Computed example of a mutant assay.
Amino acid sequence: MNILFFLTPKNEVAYIYEDDSLRQALEKMEYHKYSAIPVINRTGKYVGTITEGDMLWGIKNKLSLSLKESERVTVAAIDRRSDNRPVYADSDMEGLIDKALMQNFVPVVDDQKNFIGIITRKDIIRYFYEKSQEVQRPALKSQPTIGSKL
């Protein structure tokens, strides 16, 4: 199966640029109700993922900021605990599932490492749940019910 079947394209995903301010990032995450968001550079390359926790720890450990002062701090200045590892658009399902087990979303990049979208763990689970239901329906129809004659 082609992993692009699961892709939410870049134009439908909220993301931030590495030179966006901390305030811009916080406001975008709040607006979209994200707890983590992809970070790309101005040429469109995937840089990493920043989480609410990364920002909070950065504010606590590095900065003593007011919201106004956060406009001067770029996202790139905040240390990230870990990044959601991307997959290439031509990756196989095994590579996708391996990453999705460990991350809520998997960034997808092209062969030039340009960010093209994400695949969410939720979409993968939903797809396989629906497939399992399709397999079970015919099996359930062929089984006798309680009280029926065999």
Rank of each mutant, 00 (worst) to 15 (best):
L4C: 15
F5A: 11
F6I: 06
P9H: 01
E12T: 12
A14D: 09
A14G: 10
Y15S: 03
Y15I: 05
Y17C: 05
Y17T: 04
D19C: 06
D20C: 09
R23M: 13
Q24T: 14
L26H: 04
L26D: 02
E27K: 08
M29F: 07
H32C: 13
K33F: 08
Y34F: 06
S35C: 07
P38N: 02
V39K: 00
V39D: 00
I40Q: 00
I40P: 01
R42K: 06
G44D: 00
Y46R: 01
V47L: 05
G48P: 03
G48W: 00
I50C: 08
D54C: 02
M55V: 04
I59R: 04
K62G: 14
K62C: 10
K62H: 08
S64D: 09
S66I: 02
E69H: 05
R72T: 09
R72Q: 11
T74E: 10
V75L: 03
A76M: 07
A76Q: 13
R81W: 09
D83P: 05
P86N: 02
V87F: 05
Y88P: 13
D90E: 07
D92S: 07
L96C: 06
I97E: 02
K99N: 12
A100T: 03
L101G: 11
M102Y: 14
N104Y: 14
F105V: 06
F105N: 04
V106P: 05
V108L: 05
I116D: 00
Y129L: 14
E130M: 11
E134K: 09
E134P: 14
V135H: 14
Q136T: 14
A139S: 13
S142R: 09
S142N: 08
P144N: 14
K149Q: 13
K149S: 12
L150A: 10
L150N: 10
L150M: 15
